[in-house]
């Protein structure tokens, strides 16, 4: 099994189901790619970089929502 820590929670993936990019991960989680920014191992990744940002086993990923309400 491969795993990612997403927003503090460990998520496991079968090797063949492990998403290879941030875009693929968001699709798998059902999160709209324009609704969040991501932080991969502490580095902020902007939405326009999602398709070319690789995701690897053991990474810590934070998905931070745009929240415009007040």
């Amino acid at each position: 099994m491969k795993s990612l820590q997403i927003n503090g929670q460990i998520r496991q993936f079968l090797p063949q189901e492990m998403p290879s990019t941030l875009s693929a991960l968001l699709e798998k989680l059902g999160i709209g790619a324009t609704t969040v920014v991501a932080e991969v191992d502490g580095q902020i990744v902007r939405p326009e970089e999602f398709t070319r940002t690789a995701v690897r086993d053991g990474q810590t990923i934070e998905l931070i929502k745009f929240m415009g309400g007040g």
Partner: peptide
């Protein structure tokens, strides 16, 4: 530094 600019379109969900 976190969010470069407003999200595209209505991604932020309107009011």
């Amino acid at each position: 530094c976190v969010f470069a600019g407003p999200p595209p379109g209505n991604a932020g969900a309107p009011c």
